[in-house]
Design a protein around this nucleic acid. Structure first.
Lengths: 186, 186
DNA sequence: GCGAAGATACCGACCAGCCGGTATGTTTCG
DNA sequence: CGAAACATACCGGCTGGTCGGTATCTTCGC
């Protein structure tokens, strides 16, 4: 059996690495290549090892989705806390998280959105989150102009998803400030 | 056996139906469920019958992609021809095609975008089409404000894709005229 | 401290089912 | 007839998933 499992046991690390690798494969190798085997290989674990942490592929994608959603949620909260202006506060935070100017790391939205394509149940989870958030900030972010800005933000990260490495048609920094400007009351 | 193929032979109809069913499955049952068997079943044909029309699954998706892209292209051309104002003409046509107020049938974008997730080659095709179109109308649609509007349009049909049956957070008609307004020179 | 004892983490082999694809038959059209 | 338009049967490969086993961690009596 060639003792291969004499590695140090660090379940939390392995589990996290599985999620990370799954996210990366999802984004830059496409949805079709997100197989249990591929994820396990990328994380340096056997398929059986992966299935130990996540009872099924479904559970894996669910966990991935939940993690990214939580990450986005926290990011937005932090961003909102640093914003002194009430009007359009959520929309600005949403834009900051998606455009990622001055942010570090990849946008959680990427993996999120691809996940929704694989499973209708995940779509529902996303919808729930978004509408809950919208309801929560309806006083400050209910205006149609702000909804438009949020739509634009969605369009931007969609472009990022479809063209990961090519440069955008217009300067992101300029686009960003343009969008932020649109969230100021007139 | 059991002579099941006593139906009238109408290859063009069957071929088209295969494409339609593929598009529908793609949009509302997710990418993972787009199998040759499923498409064949939905179209009332056996798997072998499908493979007769499209030599491979790859060919099927390519044909689907090409058809939807051609459809979108024609729609935009027609929309632009009916627009007397030069500035932002392409952007308005793009918005009309995606928002689909006063348009009939589903947005071709939906199936288009999901297709791009399955095959990187299709992404490239989409990018090529879009940048070619952008280059062609750079004189009338090069302004950053118009790019923003187009981003917003992308965001809208993305929402349609993720929430096919739920009603949008704001009135589509109002959103539409708001976006059109943004394409008028100031 | 130490060592038994169980729980946890992980491996490796295996399986049933579905996938895309092929090869071949049968029916209908021109 | 002959060719196109299908249906049927079947195959190899890969998929997600199971199972039994082993190595490491943790707990706890002493």
């Amino acid at each position: 059996m060639s003792l291969a499992n004499q590695r140090k046991k660090e379940p939390d690390v392995v589990r996290q690495k599985l999620l990370d690798c799954a996210a990366q494969i999802l984004v830059d190798r496409g949805l079709a290549n997100l197989t249990v085997q591929a994820v396990a290989d990328a994380a340096g674990v056997t398929k059986g090892g992966l299935l130990h942490h996540f009872a099924s592929k479904q559970k894996l994608t669910e966990a991935l989705f939940a993690e990214k959603l939580r990450s986005l949620d926290a990011e937005i909260d932090a961003s909102m806390a640093a914003d002194p202006v009430a009007y359009g506060r959520f929309t600005r935070a949403y834009v900051r998280s998606t455009l990622r100017v001055g942010q570090t790391g990849p946008c959680p939205c990427a993996a999120l959105s691809v996940s929704t394509l694989v499973d209708p149940a995940l779509r529902q989870a996303w919808r729930d989150w978004y509408s809950a958030r919208l309801q929560r900030h309806r006083d400050t972010d209910g205006a149609p102009e702000l909804q438009l800005v949020r739509y634009a933000a969605d369009g931007v990260w969609l472009e990022d998803l479809m063209a990961p490495d090519s440069e955008p048609p217009i300067d992101r920094q300029a686009l960003f400030s343009q969008m932020i400007d649109l969230t100021r009351k007139r």
